[in-house]
């Protein structure tokens, strides 16, 4: 099927089978490397993108479900974004593979007022895994960005 998806403010066209996952369209048809495949079961969050400002797992989201929505990947976030800058200031990363997903998740939490304290931030990050174990600094970063 022919898909037209809105991604980072532009329209991406892709001729794909309906069961193609959004992450594959973003990586292969839109050339974006921010959404990444790690677990393949929607559990770890490295494939996180925002769909109408809400984080979703692009690795298990059939691409046609994204029609009519606005998709934002890390590439669509300006570098002067408060959450991005707080991640940088707190050095809240090691290998970086999970970090775009963390930033997008953190951004949605901050925007919606779901980052009131560390407990709420942890709760919001529960589905974003970081094997390097940067959680404490990531929580610091989001906590500061929320203020």
């Amino acid at each position: 099927m022919n898909l037209a998806l809105r991604v980072n403010g532009r329209t991406i066209h892709a001729d794909v089978e309906p069961e193609t996952m959004l992450v594959d369209v973003l990586r292969e048809h839109a050339g974006l490397t921010g959404p990444r495949v790690t677990c393949g079961v929607g559990l770890c969050g490295t494939c996180t993108v925002l769909m109408d400002e809400q984080p979703v797992s692009a690795c298990i989201l059939m691409a046609p479900l994204a029609q009519g929505t606005e998709i934002t990947t890390i590439e669509g976030i300006p570098e002067d974004d408060a959450v991005v800058r707080c991640f940088d200031r707190h050095h809240a990363f090691q290998c970086g593979f999970c970090i775009p997903g963390m930033v997008l998740t953190g951004r949605a939490m901050v925007a919606e007022g779901h980052a009131a304290d560390r407990e709420e931030i942890r709760e919001g990050l529960g589905g974003n895994l970081c094997r390097c174990g940067c959680y404490l600094k990531i929580i610091d970063a989001i906590e500061e960005a929320a203020q």
Partner: peptide, 16 residues
């Protein structure tokens, strides 16, 4: 500057 690991500004072996 902003570290490129935060903004997907680096390429891993999986990316290219």
């Amino acid at each position: 500057g902003v570290n490129p690991r935060i903004t997907a500004g680096i390429r891993y072996a999986t990316d290219g």
